[in-house]
Design a protein around this nucleic acid. Structure first.
Lengths: 158, 158
DNA sequence: TAAATAATGATTATCATTCTCACTTTATCG
DNA sequence: CGATAAAGTGAGAATGATAATCATTATTTA
């Protein structure tokens, strides 16, 4: 049984969700978010681009009510398991976090680490099919092309 | 760790390459590999599945001629820039390395970290088109679906 | 309201990865 | 060839992001 979301934050966030994955994500919404989780979710929704856990921590340090570093990591993990937030590893090893509604297709340079978002994506239909045919509950996917960007190709000679 | 065994020799490896990306990778094969790089390449070609840098280091420790840890990391980075080796971040933060000929499509559970290879892939054509229309030199791509595996979905109640 | 449960924060611990620097090997070129 | 430059290597230390600990506080549940 599904409890309908009641808070305004959740309603706003629902506007982001669409399509077949909506139901799977909704099933997780009945679990209330803690204060910290909601704060982080709100921050990510207001931020252009991705943030590292450390950056999120720093941001809350500058506010009246700070948030412990451990809480940031715990909340991010919980938000991921709820399907609301995704993590992506950068070549330098740091993880960046975004809402699962953000861009998630990149050209990533193996040399300088630059990540260029790709607009097009041929796999949304595949994702839905996969979610139906496998027991796996798909929240989001990442399609990443690795190689060398033009400047680095030139710089390295080849 | 979770990859099915694949073919290993350089000749066989070349069979996997096709179309536009073949030339770009061949251009890198001309560059000589150092002794360490070749050793790591050979090890990966003889290993089923992916290895962490630490595991590679350990493996060479047990042999007569050991290899420094820094060298392992340096060689892996160089092999990546040459387009011969790919790295993939696991949810626990560790990186695993495989030849760029291995499977690279997964269902990854956000809770337990299990990665299940997916055979099908709808983006190979897209990759070639992308390599031609962008200045980016594509070595390989990763298509990863994140969510919860069946056991974890049940375990977490939902 | 009281007891049970979950979340939090300050701190410490962990550990994969990178850096440093002295040394060795390989490449370049007169 | 030899000399010199350039690149690669290894041992160990430093880095830094993330996880673990544990006492305390907030939130649910009955």
């Amino acid at each position: 049984m599904l409890h309908p979301p009641k808070s305004k934050t959740l309603n706003k966030f629902l506007q982001f969700l669409s399509g077949a994955t909506l139901m799977t994500r909704l099933s997780h919404l009945k679990v209330r978010l803690t204060h910290s989780q909601r704060q982080i979710y709100t921050l990510l929704s207001q931020t252009d681009g991705a943030m590292t856990a450390q950056a999120i921590y720093q941001r809350f340090q500058t506010q009246q009510k700070s948030m412990g570093l451990a809480t940031v990591y715990r909340a991010l993990r919980t938000l991921q398991i709820k399907g609301l937030v995704q993590a992506r590893a950068q070549p330098n090893g740091e993880w960046v976090y975004t809402l699962t509604t953000e861009d998630r297709h990149y050209l990533t340079c193996l040399n300088c680490g630059a990540s260029i978002p790709v607009e097009e994506c041929p796999v949304h239909a595949f994702e839905e099919k996969l979610a139906q045919t496998s027991q796996f509950q798909v929240f989001y996917h990442t399609l990443e092309f690795f190689g060398l960007c033009a400047p680095c190709t030139q710089r390295l000679g080849s």
